[in-house]
Design a protein around this nucleic acid. Structure first.
Ligand SMILES: [Mn+2]
Ligand SMILES: [Mn+2]
Ligand SMILES: [Zn+2]
Ligand SMILES: [Zn+2]
Lengths: 157, 157
DNA sequence: GTTTTTAATGAGAATAATTATCATTACCAA
DNA sequence: TTGGTAATGATAATTATTCTCATTAAAAAC
């Protein structure tokens, strides 16, 4: 795997080997872009980034690849209220990078936060146990968002 | 206000009186539909329901009215991963009806749950305090979703 | 009540994110 | 190599949502 393609060399190759999933250059490139940022990129953002290093990429491929990664549980897809989906790689060291979002309803700015994760994990664990039992529902992940006004938008109210 | 238009007679009229907001028949009708269901209706669902009782309603009015209600903090707008927005009236007795959602990633079914609300309120209160201070962010509401597979979809896996 | 002013509506066109289609290309396994 | 399959990229199609604008309804002024 060429240097600069997302994570420790071979990591993604190993991640996908054996599955009937090929780690092609377009796929590598998308993963690479996602792995290099903590921003919340839209499909088009990602397309433009990949395009810089791999200009023959097609926008439809980006959408296809993102959907593939979401299905595989490698990427999370978010809706922050502007009308495009935003994507974020789920980091390996989940515990380290587990976080949620503050979303400004006005400017749509998004702030990652990791505070209170311990309290959260405790609360979530209990809730997940109870809910999955009661509703016979297999819980795979969760979303927590606080919504309101960011410091900037609070001024201009 | 005609009987059957959403809640105790005069309630919504009082709710909006004095604001420069008119409680017209299209607006009443939309509120009425939302107040009579616990489903998570899309704009078009609402349009079709209102249309039954007020056939001259326009779809664009429904969108406009829903946005207005969201701005007023009377209605919440959700994204459950199918690609249309869904709307839910925020009930007066918030404590009573405060709930969150289990969302099936496969069939997009949505289950309301109210369990663990006490634990949640405690956790949320603490988090809100800390986060709003640290990030100088005015928190207005929050979203919690558990996502995964409903009992049906778990079978066909 | 009638007129004046303003806000809200409804039809339809326009927008824009996402999906579907399909011919071409890259990849893998004999 | 060669055959079979999976992935890609260009493009068209879809579809939820927003915009525009002439018409209508509501409140305010008279
Ligand atoms: Mn994030
Ligand atoms: Mn609900
Ligand atoms: Zn803001
Ligand atoms: Zn399901």
């Amino acid at each position: 795997m060429p240097k600069g393609f997302g994570g420790p060399p071979g990591w993604w190759a190993r991640r996908f080997r054996g599955l009937e999933h090929r780690l092609t250059i377009p796929r590598q490139s998308v993963i690479d872009v996602l792995s290099k940022t903590s921003k919340h990129l839209s499909a088009e953002d990602i397309y433009l980034e990949v395009h810089k290093v791999y200009p023959m990429i097609g926008l439809s491929s980006v959408y296809r690849i993102l959907e593939w990664l979401v299905q595989l549980g490698v990427v999370m897809k978010f809706d922050f209220g502007d009308k495009k989906a935003r994507y974020e790689l789920i980091k390996e060291s989940r515990e380290e990078h587990h976080h949620h979002h503050l979303v400004c309803r006005k400017c749509k700015r998004v702030i990652d936060y990791t505070e209170f994760i311990n309290d959260e994990v405790e609360f979530i664990k209990k809730a997940e146990q109870g809910l999955s039992k009661k509703y016979n529902f297999k819980i795979e992940d969760h979303i927590i968002q606080f919504r309101g006004l960011c410091s900037e938008c609070k001024e201009t109210e």
